[in-house]
């Protein structure tokens, strides 16, 4: 028996919106720790890892560890039946091939019961070792989102360069080139507006903008984003989900031919 109840149902809607453009189908892993997912995009260039800890739910019951294979697009369709202020309950029984979503309006005057078919999904779980990164940039997630959107109108790739001067995002395309530098700014009174750069070594890495732009669909989950970089390693773009966990995106770099 698996049952979880999330009073802030819009959070699940936002989490699925943050995944659906990257991943088609995924196994959701349910255990006493929480509700988690690890999945790659179809070309195996990017990976998303989601963790929603059990303590973050109003009710969380998971009698044994198991996986539920779901189509993310279908899940997004089902969640469209939920209003933003609805309370969401997800239920599944052992051995069944369906999952039930229940949406309750805050005043309890409307209850929707939605059943969705589960899928058998063959997926590799990758081991991601804990790593020390050469540079870690924390910045407002909206700022990062608008930089990626702006640069993707000019070029297909973004080169992220971290130095003592700050972090520079640059691109080049047929119509021209652009670069945007953000300097460290920790003096702001609002911590969510700060840009903080921790650098052990200068790093320069290039990534496909189409993936990075997809990651910024998670912007509404967190006011800050953390970008962790090391030479010749995938970048990690992390959005913390308050009191619950995180969504982390990993993207392999592009290298010169």
């Amino acid at each position: 028996m698996f049952e979880l109840r999330l009073v802030q149902g819009s959070l699940l809607k936002r989490v699925i919106d943050a995944i659906k453009d990257l991943v088609n189908d995924a196994n959701f892993d349910c255990s006493s720790t929480g509700f988690s997912l690890q999945a790659m995009d179809s070309s195996h260039v990017a990976l998303v890892a989601l963790l929603l800890r059990s303590e973050g739910f109003e009710h969380f019951r998971c009698d044994r560890t198991f996986s539920m294979g779901m189509s993310i697009a279908n899940m997004a369709k089902m969640l469209k039946c939920a209003s933003n202020d609805d309370i969401i309950t997800i239920k599944a029984d052992d051995g069944t091939d369906t999952v039930t979503f229940m949406f309750e309006s805050p005043s309890q005057d409307k209850i929707s019961d939605i059943e969705m078919k589960l899928m058998d999904i063959d997926s590799d779980h990758l081991g991601i070792p804990d790593a020390e990164y050469e540079a870690i940039v924390r910045m407002p997630s909206t700022e990062f989102g608008s930089i990626c959107t702006s640069l993707s109108t000019i070029g297909d790739t973004v080169t992220i360069a971290v130095s003592k001067q700050g972090v520079t995002f640059s691109t080049k395309g047929d119509i021209g080139s652009g670069n945007i530098t953000c300097r460290q700014n920790s003096s702001t009174e609002k911590p969510e507006e700060a840009t903080i750069i921790e650098m052990k070594e200068p790093v320069v890495l290039t990534f496909a903008l189409k993936y990075i732009t997809t990651f910024t669909k998670a912007t509404s989950l967190s006011s800050q984003v953390t970008i962790s970089l090391s030479s010749d390693m995938p970048v990690v773009v992390e959005y913390k989900i308050a009191e619950m966990g995180h969504i982390r995106y990993y993207l392999a770099p592009k290298i010169e031919e």
């Binding site: 790659m40 195996h44 990017a46 779980h125 995938p234 290298i255």
Partner: peptide, 14 residues
């Protein structure tokens, strides 16, 4: 430009 590497070039199945 450049060659796109795969995430599986870095992380192995666990």
């Amino acid at each position: 430009g450049g060659v796109q590497l795969a995430i599986t070039d870095y992380y192995r199945s666990s």
